[in-house]
Amino acid sequence: MEHSSIKELETEKEILEAFSIIKQLRTHLNENTYLDLVTEAKEKDNYKLYALIDDNEIVALTGFKPMITLYYGRFVWVCDLVTDTRKRSKGYGEQLLAYVHKWAKEYNYESVALSSGIQRKDAHHFYEDKMNYQKVSYVFKKRLV
């Protein structure tokens, strides 16, 4: 990790280079849908996509967006956080989430929030035990199509 850096992915080429990693988390996406959603989210929702690059290779990604709600106030919502399955347990997720915390503080956001699938027990331990997140709610979803 001595040669690692965190970089915002802004061009179509950069975004597409990250697809093989995001696909590990968002298995339902194909490359075209992924690109369309990231592009629209960046334009309409101020979505940010950052890569952790180690030895010139993307090893982890986070996607987040600043938001304001009556419940949370000014906060950053982490939409995506994934480390390449071949590179896990090396501190990459922690480094990216710490970067999101720093970004949020720099832009005067009060907190960082995220949701995690019920089945992702290892992720829950990471958020609660390693990153000191508190479980504050359940997230419910209803498909309309």
Rank of each mutant, 00 (worst) to 15 (best):
residue 86 R to N: 13
residue 131 M to E: 07
residue 40 E to W: 09
residue 86 R to V: 06
residue 42 K to Q: 01
residue 96 L to F: 10
residue 121 K to F: 12
residue 120 R to H: 13
residue 17 E to P: 00
residue 22 I to P: 06
residue 75 F to D: 08
residue 127 Y to P: 13
residue 111 S to G: 08
residue 42 K to L: 00
residue 102 K to M: 09
residue 134 Q to V: 05
residue 8 E to Q: 03
residue 124 H to D: 03
residue 72 Y to L: 07
residue 2 E to D: 11
residue 26 R to D: 12
residue 136 V to M: 05
residue 41 A to W: 07
residue 99 Y to W: 11
residue 45 D to G: 12
residue 28 H to P: 00
residue 127 Y to V: 12
residue 45 D to N: 15
residue 94 E to I: 09
residue 5 S to V: 15
residue 69 T to W: 04
residue 115 S to E: 14
residue 126 F to W: 13
residue 37 L to R: 13
residue 39 T to C: 10
residue 69 T to Y: 03
residue 90 K to I: 09
residue 120 R to Q: 13
residue 129 D to G: 11
residue 104 A to I: 03
residue 92 Y to L: 04
residue 10 E to M: 15
residue 126 F to V: 10
residue 43 E to R: 12
residue 20 S to R: 09
residue 122 D to Y: 14
residue 32 N to S: 14
residue 6 I to L: 04
residue 81 L to K: 07
residue 55 D to Q: 07
residue 11 T to E: 04
residue 70 L to F: 15
residue 51 A to Q: 08
residue 110 E to S: 12
residue 18 A to P: 06
residue 120 R to F: 09
residue 48 K to D: 10
residue 66 P to Y: 12
residue 55 D to C: 12
residue 88 R to I: 05
residue 101 H to E: 13
residue 56 N to F: 03
residue 134 Q to R: 08
residue 112 V to A: 04
residue 112 V to R: 10
residue 55 D to F: 09
residue 27 T to N: 03
residue 98 A to M: 10
residue 24 Q to L: 03
residue 90 K to P: 12
residue 17 E to R: 03
residue 22 I to T: 14
residue 141 K to R: 05
residue 94 E to T: 15
residue 72 Y to C: 07
residue 84 D to C: 14
residue 54 D to N: 11
residue 141 K to Y: 05
residue 21 I to R: 00
residue 24 Q to F: 04
residue 35 L to R: 00
residue 41 A to T: 02
residue 116 S to V: 15
residue 135 K to V: 15
residue 96 L to E: 02
residue 4 S to C: 14
residue 54 D to F: 09
residue 30 N to P: 02
residue 59 V to K: 10
residue 65 K to D: 01
residue 56 N to E: 06
residue 122 D to H: 13
residue 11 T to P: 02
residue 44 K to R: 07
residue 41 A to G: 01
residue 38 V to L: 04
residue 87 K to G: 03
residue 72 Y to I: 00
residue 145 V to H: 14
residue 51 A to V: 03
residue 57 E to P: 01
residue 53 I to F: 04
residue 60 A to R: 07
residue 94 E to M: 13
residue 20 S to V: 06
